[in-house]
Computed example of a mutant assay.
Amino acid sequence: MEHFIWNVNPNILELGPLQLRWYGLLFVGSFFLGLLILTKIYKREGKDPAELDALLIYAMVGTVLGSRLVHCLFYEPDFYLSHPIEILKVWKGGLASHGGLAGVLIAFYLFSKRYNTPYMWLLSRTAIAGTVIAASVRIGNLFNSEILGLPSDKPWAIIFAKVDMVPRHPVQLYEALSYLIMFLLLVTIYRKVTPAFATKIIPGVFLVTMFTTRFFLEYTKTRQAAYTTDLPFTTGQMLSIPYIILGILWIIWAFKSASKDSKYDKASHL
């Protein structure tokens, strides 16, 4: 069986020691795409889009710091603790999405305090844009021929020629497609429910769908951590479980809270 061979140069342009990589372009570009989505949301809800320039900076700094630290401390702790200066060399690669989300949650909390924006409202609206950013990052991983899938004989398996000649699950595409489906789901929820309920429910739906997807797709990935444990789960799966639990609890709270609000509204009209 013939399989598609992926042998794309990860560099768009090389000028001596300087390199412009597809990953970097997609990573940075995805944030500006997210900015466009949030601009429409802000205008739709009568909020000032001017503060989004600052939000973009908070989001990018939180994402890079969080994702870099979690990658270094959870996926390759022995190497980075022995060579701490390497933690600063982000351009060499090594970003963990679990840490990126944690970094963004902290950054957005600081932003909400600084700009007097309701934290829950901010999380729910940025979650919509976050799915597009996540999809773009995975396409960037594809250009880098990284986060490889396990060997596969499926007709859609891809050979990453820069790594080996073994057909593998294109797990980067699996994730990217999943996140775009999540985007459509969150947009549908946002448009179909009341703004107050969207604020409560969207973050929970984001967490459950995002990290349940991550959990199950780990079964098609090669192990990324530089160490093994006696546990039956990968590092990525173990990092996903707390987010899934948090998302489930969040959704339960959202429905209970909406039910209480509904009962209060009925009582107030009696």
Rank of each mutant, 00 (worst) to 15 (best):
A225N: 08
L142I: 11
K221I: 05
P232W: 02
K256W: 04
G103I: 10
S178D: 12
T209P: 08
G66M: 06
V208C: 04
P118C: 10
M210A: 13
E14I: 14
F211C: 10
V64T: 14
I87H: 01
T131D: 09
R223C: 00
L65W: 12
L18W: 02
L184R: 06
A196D: 13
N7P: 05
R114N: 03
W22M: 04
F183G: 01
L184Y: 10
F197S: 00
K113I: 03
Y264G: 00
W156G: 12
V90K: 01
R138M: 05
A161R: 09
H3G: 06
H3W: 13
A196M: 01
T234M: 08
L239H: 07
A226V: 08
M60E: 04
K263P: 06
H169N: 12
L217P: 00
I202E: 03
Y264L: 15
R125K: 14
Y75D: 03
F31R: 04
G236P: 00
G34C: 09
L15G: 02
G62R: 05
F32D: 02
L105W: 05
P167D: 02
T235I: 09
Q224G: 13
I244A: 09
Y23E: 03
Y58P: 00
T126V: 12
Y179S: 05
R21S: 11
F233N: 01
F108N: 08
F31T: 00
I133V: 15
G236Q: 09
S240Y: 09
E14V: 14
N144F: 11
S240L: 12
V193N: 08
L69D: 10
C72Q: 06
F215Y: 13
S124T: 01
T126C: 11
R191N: 13
P242G: 06
I248A: 07
G100E: 04
A258W: 03
G94D: 07
I202H: 08
W156V: 10
L13Q: 01
P77H: 07
Y58Q: 00
F4H: 11
D230Y: 15
D261S: 07
F160G: 00
I245P: 02
V132E: 07
L13R: 01
F74R: 00
F32T: 10
I41H: 09
F27A: 01
L95W: 02
P118F: 13
W253N: 02
L35W: 13
Q172G: 08
F215T: 10
V171S: 15
F27L: 14
I37V: 15
